[in-house]
Amino acid sequence: MLCENCNKKPATVHLTKILNEKKAEHHLCEQCATQQEGVYFDTSYSINNFLTGLLDSIQDSPIKIDYIQTTKCDKCGMNYGKFKQLARLGCSQCYNAFQEKLGPLVKRIQGNEIHVGKIPRKAGGAILTKKEIKSLKVRLDEAIRKEDFEHAVLLRDEIRELESKLGD
């Protein structure tokens, strides 16, 4: 495949841009891709890039520049390109914003994906409460299905109480 911009060099960079829910694919040579306005293209290999550079090597899929460009943390404004540069996340919300990419990266760096160890009492309590709410909701559905409304009301109240506790 030739670069759609210059039609001379082979296309090595494949972009998928999603704009207004419309998907557009672009196939460019490296040179044209770098010249594209606003396209982040990492050419340096500084130590800071090392950790995040790992990421590109684990994925065989073509480099998805659009991800770097468009994925941004709503809370702190950090985008994925900036994270790649700094190798530091901007806030705890970044973990959700970049979830798709961070998953494999965490696995690669840490060799694990699930925390084992200390759970803070406050945040930890909330985790336990959430689990309880989940299981109560399952029981509530069951009660409704069986038309056991008396029981369902009790379960609903219990869920409400736990949820208000979480809200504090």
Partner: peptide
């Protein structure tokens, strides 16, 4: 899942 969230992974 991830435990204590830190700026560096």
């Amino acid at each position: 899942q991830l435990g204590y969230l830190t700026s560096c992974l």
